[in-house]
């Protein structure tokens, strides 16, 4: 009973936060509400038993997306407020007119799907002893469907390259607050520690490269905002190497498997665990570098 009530409150809160984020009075409050929305959504995932998703949602959906949105807001000039409201309302009505019938259609035809079972979870668990890791989600991401994950890393790289083309907008950070600087000295090592823990834990329990990378990126962003790090420049080649590291290692393993071993992305027997771990470490570093470049990277390069 109490749990049901808690779930009901969570669901209601989620909807209210979503509405608030969409119809917030200013972009600033909307972003704040959006971040809160992400955190509540993480709780919802945790209640549904999807702990991996909850971690990812909290780290990426709430934390990093929020930081990206704030960075975008800081880079943008002042938006015309009045027009925004009007356009927003009309758009909301149009969206409701489209989405409500779609929702109705979907609910009526999707309800029977809830009872169906997929054969895949059992297969995934049965193959787990040969996958090199003990956590099924990690096995799916880095062994059974590693090709998807490899391409996802390329998606992240493309997002970074795409954002670079937009150029111009400068991120002017104010002089950092003395307290921020002082706290960062303690926060940064802690974040590295937690990130490393999440990464290591990923092989046997919820956690993994994306979550750990997002945490590390959060540390880099806050160090940069405290002016404890120099500007992150794309023209600095070791940084680019760091961004590429995960994808490059993944690709090298795949190609080596196809050339010397049993096939594309097949890990040789006994090597699955160390290879997966190496790929995960490299991917974590790459994800952290890419995400921090997206949030606080210097867009404009000094003229050559």
């Amino acid at each position: 009973m109490a749990e049901g009530l808690f779930d009901l409150v969570l669901a209601g809160l989620l909807l209210m936060l979503a509405g608030g984020a969409l119809y917030g009075r200013s972009l600033y409050t909307s972003i704040l509400l959006f971040v809160t929305f992400g955190l509540v959504l993480a709780l919802v995932w945790a209640r549904l038993g999807a702990v991996d998703l909850a971690l990812a949602e909290a780290a990426i959906g709430a934390g990093l997306t929020g930081a990206l949105l704030f960075a975008a807001l800081a880079r943008q000039g002042r938006a015309p407020e009045g027009e925004f409201d009007l356009a927003c309302r009309r758009r909301g009505l149009a969206a409701a007119a489209v989405l409500l019938p779609v929702l109705w259609l979907m609910l009526s035809s999707l309800a029977p799907l809830a009872e169906r079972d997929s054969p895949l979870p059992e297969l995934a668990l049965a193959a787990l002893p040969h996958s090199g890791v003990e956590h099924p989600v990690t096995a799916v991401l880095l062994n059974y469907r590693a090709w998807d994950t490899l391409l996802e890393l390329a998606v992240l790289l493309l997002a970074l390259l795409g954002a670079r083309q937009l150029g111009s907008g400068r991120l002017d950070t104010a002089r950092p607050w003395p307290q921020l600087r002082a706290w960062n000295a303690h926060l940064a090592p802690l974040l590295v520690l937690v990130g490393g823990f999440l990464l290591w834990r990923g092989s046997s329990a919820p956690g993994g490269a994306f979550q750990a990378g997002a945490l590390l990126a959060a540390g880099v962003v806050s160090l940069r905002l405290a002016h404890l790090l120099p500007p992150l420049r794309w023209s600095f080649w070791p940084l680019r190497l760091l961004v590429l590291l995960g994808l490059a290692l993944f690709l090298a393993v795949a190609a080596a498997g196809a050339w010397l071993g049993q096939g594309w992305l097949s890990y040789p027997a006994g090597w699955a665990k160390p290879l997966i771990l190496a790929i995960e470490v490299a991917a974590t570093l790459s994800i952290a570098a890419s995400l921090s470049l997206l949030v606080v990277g210097e867009r404009r390069e000094p003229a050559p």
């Binding site: 895949l120 297969l123 062994n143 059974y144 090709w147 998807d148 594309w264």
Partner: peptide, 15 residues
């Protein structure tokens, strides 16, 4: 066909 990673189709990806 190529079974990526050497896993049979419903579990993994085929090319």
């Amino acid at each position: 066909w190529l079974e990526v990673g050497g896993w049979a189709p419903p579990l993994a990806i085929r090319l």
